[in-house]
């Protein structure tokens, strides 16, 4: 285990170097190249019509190509909308990276491609009736279908209201659209707008903080931001001590520990 009191421990990033992250905020959601990586960086590059902060170019020295990273489920337009929306839900700020830089869009994409997207371990047998709120979700649609519909509706609503696609809207406009979904101000016939928003929000947090093996929490930066040590073999030595920062480790580190 790393020395928890070592000031240079990576968990201290937020305390030691707030300015390193400043540019992320200034760049809004479109943080581009360095952290996000080529594929996504170009996807969410704002269209010429929007005035957003300048892009950090792709292929800068810091970029390491990650061949594990490409969508399994979303098309590029969907990935772009998810990128923009999750970055508003969990934006980059002084404390650290937002959804985009953490790889949340890829996380959600990968989850929808598998078991979770198909609701495979859930009771999906008919008959389907509308229930009381206390009875929980009673729809026949699976998560991947709800996402497809939800993203299309985000797009439709943005077009109707602002005559632009969601990803091209200014951040404040994007917030307005998301709020309209969150509050069910948008009335949809197929799915519940607020139900979709809730799922988008919770999967954003999952992507920010799950083990990096799932495609989010890039380089454990989600964990570092909040001084969370990830996966440790033991806390027996620190449990009765005051708070200390412990450099995080992931399940990949654990793999070699046994």
């Amino acid at each position: 285990m790393a020395d928890p009191n070592q000031p240079g421990g990576s968990g201290r990033d937020k305390v030691e170097q707030p300015s390193r992250r400043k540019f992320l905020v200034q760049a809004g959601y479109a943080v581009g190249g360095v952290i996000v990586g080529g594929a996504l960086g170009s996807l969410i590059r704002p269209s010429k019509k929007t005035e957003t902060a300048p892009q950090t170019g792709e292929g800068t020295t810091a970029e390491i190509k990650n061949y594990n990273r490409a969508p399994m489920f979303f098309n590029q337009e969907q990935l772009g909308i998810v990128s923009a929306a999750t970055e508003r839900i969990f934006p980059a700020d002084d404390a650290g990276p937002g959804a985009l830089a953490l790889g949340v869009p890829f996380f959600i994409d990968h989850q929808l491609a598998g078991e979770w997207g198909f609701n495979s371990r859930e009771y999906m047998s008919p008959p389907f009736y509308a229930g009381e709120k206390v009875q929980g979700y009673q729809g026949r649609l699976k998560r991947r279908e709800m996402f497809e519909i939800g993203l299309r509706e985000l797009e439709n609503y943005s077009q109707t209201k602002f005559t632009k696609g969601f990803a091209a809207l200014a951040p404040e406009q994007q917030d307005e659209v998301l709020k309209a979904f969150e509050s069910d101000e948008v009335k949809l016939t197929t799915i519940s707008a607020s139900g979709f928003f809730k799922m988008l929000r919770s999967s954003t947090l999952e992507g920010a903080y799950s083990d990096p093996l799932y495609g989010g929490n890039a380089d454990m930066n989600g964990w570092k931001m909040r001084s969370y040590p990830g996966n440790q073999m033991s806390y027996a030595d620190v449990i009765d001590k005051d708070f200390s920062v412990i450099a995080p480790s992931s399940l990949q580190d654990h793999l070699s520990a046994h």
């Binding site: 508003r88 839900i89 700020d93 929000r201 909040r226």
Partner: peptide, 11 residues
């Protein structure tokens, strides 16, 4: 429950 204020406070 989301956005800049949520993130800053949750962290």
């Amino acid at each position: 429950s989301w956005g800049a204020a949520f993130k800053a406070n949750s962290v």
